[in-house]
Nucleic acid binder design. Structure first.
Lengths: 125, 125
DNA sequence: CAGCATCCGCAGCGATACTG
DNA sequence: CAGTATCGCTGCGGATGCTG
C-alpha cells in the first residue's frame, strides 16, 4: 500500500536526482567517518582531535582530517584552535550540526537495537 | 552544553565500536546506493528492476544487483520473481525495511531542504 | 599535540559483453 | 526483462615520515 511521502515533493519520479546538490551533502554526511564524527559530537560537548580519534575507533589521521575539513566547510562543525603550546584544538557542532545529529540519533538507536537480528538473517542466507 | 544521549547506553565511551555488528549494518544501509534504493521503495509500492534503475539515477547494473542482494539478505527487501516470460521481478520493503525507511525519511527531507545553504557555505570556504 | 605531504596498493566500481 | 561474468582502472584510504 502506498504511503504519502514528503520526499516526493522534491523528487516526483526519482529519489535524489543525479548531480543534485543534496547528493553531495548525502555523501559527506552518510560517509563512514562523517557519520561517526557527527555522532561523537552529537552530545553537544566539544571534543579534541585526539579524543575524536579515540571515539571514532579505527579512523586514520588522514581520514579524520579530511572528514573534519569537509564537515567544517559544510557548516556542521566548528574548529576552535587556541594559540598555545602545545596546541589545543576543539571541535564542536554548529546549530546546523546539532539539527542533523538530532535526526541521526533515533536512526542510530534503531540500527544498534536491530543489528543482531539483521546480521543473523544475513548469515542464514 | 551536554545533551542526554540514548546512544551512550550502547556506547559509553566510543561511538560505534570497531567490529561491532552495527557498523556492518550501517555500511549497508548508509551506502550511496543502499540509501537510494531504500528511499525509492520507501513509499511501500513494489518496484521492478528496471524501475529501480530509473529511480536511483546513475546506478550501474552491477551495483544495483549487489545492493539488492545485500538488502534482501539483511531482511530489508523482498524479491518476488514471477516465473513468466519475459521475466517479471518485483522488489518491495519488508516490515523491517519500512521501519527503517520511516526513520530515514525525515532525515532526507532535512537534507534536501538544507542542501543549498550547506553547499553555499562550502563554496565560500 | 595536531596536523600535512607523499607514496602506493588494492578493492570497489564502471563499462562491456553475454545469457536464461 | 532481469540479470551474471569478466576486465581494467582509479581513487579511496592506510602507512609512513615530517613540521609548527
Amino acid at each position: 500500500m502506498a504511503v504519502s511521502n514528503p520526499l516526493r515533493t522534491f523528487f516526483p519520479d526519482r529519489v535524489f536526482a543525479a548531480g543534485c546538490p543534496s547528493r553531495t551533502v548525502l555523501d559527506h554526511v552518510m560517509s563512514k567517518w562523517g557519520l561517526l564524527v557527527l555522532l561523537a559530537l552529537g552530545d553537544g560537548e566539544p571534543l579534541r582531535w585526539s579524543e575524536l580519534r579515540r571515539r571514532a575507533e579505527g579512523v586514520s589521521e588522514k581520514m579524520l582530517a579530511q572528514t573534519l575539513r569537509t564537515l567544517v566547510a559544510d557548516g556542521f562543525v566548528v574548529r576552535d584552535a587556541r594559540p598555545v603550546v602545545p596546541p589545543h584544538v576543539e571541535y564542536s557542532l554548529t546549530p546546523r550540526g546539532l539539527e542533523l545529529a538530532a535526526l541521526l540519533n533515533p536512526l542510530m538507536v534503531w540500527v544498534v537495537e536491530n543489528a543482531p537480528d539483521i546480521l543473523e538473517d544475513a548469515a542464514a542466507s
